[in-house]
Amino acid sequence: MPTSPHIQIYSWSLSSLTSIMHRLTGILLYISVIIISWYIVYYTYQIGALESQEQCDCPIKKAMDILFICASIALTFSLYFHFINGIRHLFWDIGKGFEKKRAQLNGLLVIVTAKILTVLTVISVIYFNYY
């Protein structure tokens, strides 16, 4: 009985990788927009309660802080990736950049640019925090 090749058979290519990542980062960004919106709502109606929060030095808080930093860096990368790859998709919609070589080059450019912008953002945040 002939069966179509399963997902593990296919080798990773840049076009499928960027396509899958576009979806994953989109879902991630949707979830984070929901969380940030509810954080703003929570913050707006409890300004006093947030200020009176006591600072504890327990290890669980440090772990949460590290987790929070990692999550925000991942979120920043997701935002940049989805942003730049979205521009690429818009160019595809008007019929540009479809040739195989151009599409490959575009895909590489998207990933590299997103990484560079993430590093720049992290550096500028550190700069604004300490100077």
Binding site: Y43, L50, L79, F83, G86, I87, L90, T121, S124, F128
Partner: peptide
């Protein structure tokens, strides 16, 4: 597609303001 195009300037604004706001979100918001 239309909402994607509308989001382009908004995301640029978000990134520029995020870098300012992140230093002290509690008091700066």
């Amino acid at each position: 597609r239309i909402s994607a195009i509308a989001l382009l300037p908004l995301i640029i604004w978000l990134v520029l303001s995020f870098v300012q706001i992140v230093q002290d979100p509690q008091s700066y918001l």
